[in-house]
Amino acid sequence: MSTSDRTWDVIVIGAGGSQAQAMLAASARGGDVSRWLAVDRAWRPETKATTEALGMTTTALDVLTSPQELRELLGSGRLVANLAGPYYRTGTVVLDAAIETGTDYLDICDDADVILPMFERTEAAEKAEVRALIGMGSSPGTTNVLIRAAVDYLGSAEDVDISWTVDVNDMTDAAARHFWHCFNIVDPDGTIHPAPSWEQLERKTVTFPGTVGTQEVIRLAHPEPITAPRFLPVTRCSNFGAITPIESLVVAWSLAFSVDAQRPRPDLAEVTDHAIDVFRTYRETRPATPRIGSGMQIDIHTDGNGLRFSAGADTEMAEATGVPAAAGIVLLLDGQTPNAGVFSPETLVPADFFTALRKVSRGGGGLELHRLVNGEQTERIRIRDLLSQTAATPA
């Protein structure tokens, strides 16, 4: 289905959010964005001005309350980038509208419970010749591509173990809501579990590079444990994460447990809004401590033998998420993805992704790659050498 004659190259939903703003700035670094339309429910004046200064047109729309207007809007674009969470509310709504209008789709969906419902749209997307790339942020997103690169190199892997941390100063209201949602573990078959008690949390200790250092992380719901075994020769995938410092994790867990959607109550929405207010107040009034930054570690292995990616840096979460999304848009516009259907970043050619990432990135990042032997980190490997040996066509 040809969409080359449509008004807009890219329509960005939720364009006023912090991660979307980072994506827009990255996209403007990488090329012409004059045929981009930035959409938000309620623009802040300064954000609207910043977006228009990049050369984009802005408009206002609430995608959850205006379904017909959403479809009319998407019908005027080649690609819609949905950066409006939470995705358990917006994901299938915008994806369905994209499929109906024959518009390619991208999001940064990090809510595990909506991943399987989105994959259920695969046949409809294929019939409509729509390419839908979901979870194209940092984690999920870059993590998935790194797993693909490692598996291409190794041939297969029994286990993938993902660990990450986020600095409390990066926890916007939207990020806090998502983090709380992650306490509801989602099984591969879609079963959703209640938030565990503090004693029931599965914990482990991970040492990240740089300023992040050694941190305790807990098992959380995320898309990668569902998508990695779906698209790659991987048997199991786990996800552990945390907010640093540890006191912030305790505060976040206690509020998440108190407003767990799996223990419904009539006033849940109102109580959750109040809990967000409490967390925001905590974040803004807590005693100042040195910024820790964000950390990531991915072990791809069989019986402890394989590869380990690791990073630890002062990169803000919005930048870490927005820039890979901009790279994903480059790949979709250039046709460097599977032809049609709903797919996650494991299907991208790693070398193509990192080429696109260089077009939109400020540079840096501090990603390291080491060989893993009997569970221990050993010799360092150049990432360019790994990428040179990965597959040359999409999975």
Rank of each mutant, 00 (worst) to 15 (best):
residue 103 T to R: 05
residue 160 V to C: 10
residue 323 V to W: 02
residue 237 C to L: 06
residue 366 G to C: 05
residue 113 D to V: 11
residue 147 I to C: 15
residue 267 D to E: 09
residue 34 S to D: 15
residue 337 T to R: 06
residue 177 R to Q: 07
residue 154 L to P: 00
residue 239 N to A: 11
residue 246 I to C: 09
residue 306 G to P: 03
residue 93 V to K: 00
residue 352 D to H: 13
residue 243 I to T: 07
residue 204 K to P: 04
residue 175 A to W: 01
residue 206 V to R: 05
residue 92 T to D: 11
residue 236 R to K: 15
residue 15 A to H: 03
residue 241 G to S: 11
residue 196 P to M: 05
residue 130 V to F: 04
residue 244 T to P: 02
residue 123 E to R: 04
residue 62 D to I: 10
residue 226 I to S: 01
residue 383 I to P: 11
residue 331 L to H: 01
residue 314 D to P: 14
residue 215 Q to H: 07
residue 387 L to A: 02
residue 317 M to I: 11
residue 149 A to I: 03
residue 291 R to K: 10
residue 345 P to T: 12
residue 16 G to L: 06
residue 159 D to W: 09
residue 192 I to D: 02
residue 222 H to M: 15
residue 41 R to Q: 12
residue 324 P to A: 04
residue 276 I to T: 07
residue 315 T to Y: 13
residue 183 F to L: 02
residue 94 V to Y: 03
residue 306 G to R: 02
residue 151 V to L: 11
residue 152 D to A: 11
residue 151 V to I: 14
residue 265 R to H: 13
residue 320 A to Q: 06
residue 196 P to W: 03
residue 280 R to H: 11
residue 276 I to W: 01
residue 204 K to C: 09
residue 250 V to A: 15
residue 349 V to N: 03
residue 12 V to I: 08
residue 268 L to N: 10
residue 69 E to L: 09
residue 54 L to P: 06
residue 310 S to Y: 07
residue 237 C to P: 04
residue 369 L to M: 10
residue 273 D to P: 01
residue 262 Q to V: 14
residue 148 R to Q: 15
residue 206 V to K: 09
residue 159 D to P: 09
residue 207 T to M: 14
residue 391 A to Y: 04
residue 108 I to L: 04
residue 312 G to R: 02
residue 312 G to W: 02
residue 310 S to I: 07
residue 64 L to C: 08
residue 59 T to G: 08
residue 15 A to V: 00
residue 319 E to G: 05
residue 255 L to F: 06
residue 119 F to Q: 08
residue 263 R to V: 06
residue 170 D to N: 04
residue 74 L to G: 00
residue 69 E to P: 03
residue 44 R to I: 03
residue 237 C to S: 09
residue 331 L to A: 04
residue 85 G to R: 00
residue 171 M to L: 10
residue 181 H to K: 05
residue 196 P to C: 12
residue 103 T to D: 00
residue 6 R to S: 03
residue 324 P to G: 05
residue 71 R to K: 11
residue 17 G to I: 05
residue 165 T to M: 11
residue 165 T to F: 07
residue 232 L to V: 05
residue 349 V to L: 09
residue 70 L to F: 01
residue 274 H to D: 12
residue 112 A to W: 01
residue 126 E to W: 04
residue 201 L to N: 01
residue 379 E to P: 04
residue 245 P to D: 12
residue 45 P to D: 13
residue 327 A to M: 03
residue 344 S to R: 12
residue 216 E to P: 14
residue 5 D to N: 12
residue 182 C to M: 12
residue 76 S to F: 08
residue 274 H to S: 10
residue 81 A to L: 08
residue 206 V to A: 12
residue 303 D to T: 13
residue 234 V to M: 02
residue 291 R to P: 01
residue 207 T to G: 13
residue 299 D to H: 07
residue 374 N to R: 14
residue 294 S to A: 13
residue 303 D to N: 10
residue 215 Q to N: 11
residue 21 Q to V: 08
residue 134 I to K: 00
residue 2 S to H: 12
residue 387 L to V: 04
residue 86 P to Q: 02
